[in-house]
């Protein structure tokens, strides 16, 4: 549905987006993850035909975003970083305008607007002026605008910013429900957002893709050079040094009954040997677990280290 190859965008001498390539299948929900200023919004603006790229190409629904801009725009719904709403308009009128802009047939406009209002639970504020609504409501009006013409592709730039926790959950559910029928790209710098809604994430930093995978695999991959914790009854020095000697183990730190064991990245499976050594020395194993690496840590690793993760399908 979306094909991006070698997309590059320069702002003056600075590359905001640098040789970006990825593809999104029909019905997929993909999260764009990256710190502020990573190039997420720029990429989205290029995909929506708002601005042209300096190099590379992008295709949506088979249409090139530069050559067939109008066809592409017909097929996308876009929620920019700042919801593009007119404060002096009523919610209902605004959505009618958005539907007209997207050339929804005259007789279908009413149902399209009703549908968008229901989906974003905005029915109650239909007659209210957008300028009098809270930020969360405006954000939802922006989202309703992106949905009103039932586009094949939805491009949402930070869709839950400014919403309260209940609304965030609602919007996430809504976005999840859009998958299958619609293809969705959403951007975020907040990880739980992406974990909650997306099937696949593309981590981008300084205009480049640093990782692209499903959430599970991304977590698994990072776990390679990982940390295990072993809680024992009897943390004798003898046992600790035996574990320390196992090849592939980087450090063993003792915190009371808990041994924090750091494994060298890329080393082979050592969990068996750790437990074996502990049992042999009669340390009395109470608990053995892999320290859960949260997506936050992965994200930080990916966006702070210079070298990309091995075999990450990375374009550098």
């Amino acid at each position: 549905m979306i094909q991006v190859s070698h997309l590059t965008k320069f702002y003056g001498p600075r590359a905001a987006v640098n040789d970006l390539s990825f593809a999104v299948k029909k019905g997929e929900i993909v999260g764009f993850l990256g710190p502020n200023g990573a190039g997420k919004s720029t990429t989205m603006k290029i995909l929506t035909g708002f601005m042209p790229a300096s190099a590379g190409s992008a295709k949506i629904a088979g249409y090139d975003v530069f050559e067939n801009a109008i066809e592409v725009k017909r097929n996308i719904g876009f929620l920019p970083e700042n919801p593009p709403v007119y404060p002096e308009m009523q919610v209902g009128d605004y959505l009618v305008f958005a539907a007209q802009l997207h050339q929804v047939a005259k007789e279908k406009i009413r149902t399209a607007v009703d549908h968008a209002l229901t989906k974003t639970s905005l029915g109650d504020v239909r007659k209210r002026l957008i300028g009098n609504l809270s930020k969360g409501y405006r954000q939802r009006v922006g989202l309703a605008q992106a949905l009103v013409h039932n586009p094949a592709v939805l491009i949402l730039d930070e869709p839950t910013v400014g919403l309260d926790p209940k609304q965030i959950i609602e919007i996430r559910e809504l976005i999840k429900g859009l998958g299958g029928e619609h293809t969705v790209i959403l951007s975020s710098h907040i990880l739980p957002e992406v974990t909650a809604t997306c099937e696949r994430i593309i981590v981008i930093n300084q205009g480049r893709i640093v990782a692209e995978d499903t959430i599970d695999q991304l977590t698994a991959r990072i776990k390679k050079g990982l940390i295990y914790s072993l809680v024992v009854k009897n943390p004798a020095q003898e046992g600790v040094s035996a574990i320390r000697k196992i090849p592939g183990i980087q450090t063993v730190t003792q915190v009371g009954p808990k041994l924090v064991i750091e494994i060298q990245p890329g080393s082979s499976e050592v969990r068996d040997q750790i437990v074996e050594a502990a049992v042999k020395r009669e340390m009395g194993v109470l608990e053995f677990s892999a320290e859960k690496v949260s997506l936050e840590e992965i994200f930080l690793q990916l966006t702070t280290i210079e070298t990309p993760i091995e075999n990450a399908g990375v374009a550098v």
């Binding site: 603006k45 929506t48 035909g49 708002f50 109008i70 066809e71 725009k73 017909r74 996308i76 876009f78 920019p80 970083e81 700042n82 919801p83 593009p84 709403v85 007119y86 404060p87 958005a98 802009l101 997207h102 050339q103 605008q145």
Partner: peptide, 14 residues
């Protein structure tokens, strides 16, 4: 100023 130009520019109109 209101960023609504983004709505117009990303709509299928010239």
């Amino acid at each position: 100023k209101q960023h609504t130009i983004e709505l117009l520019m990303t709509s299928p109109i010239t």
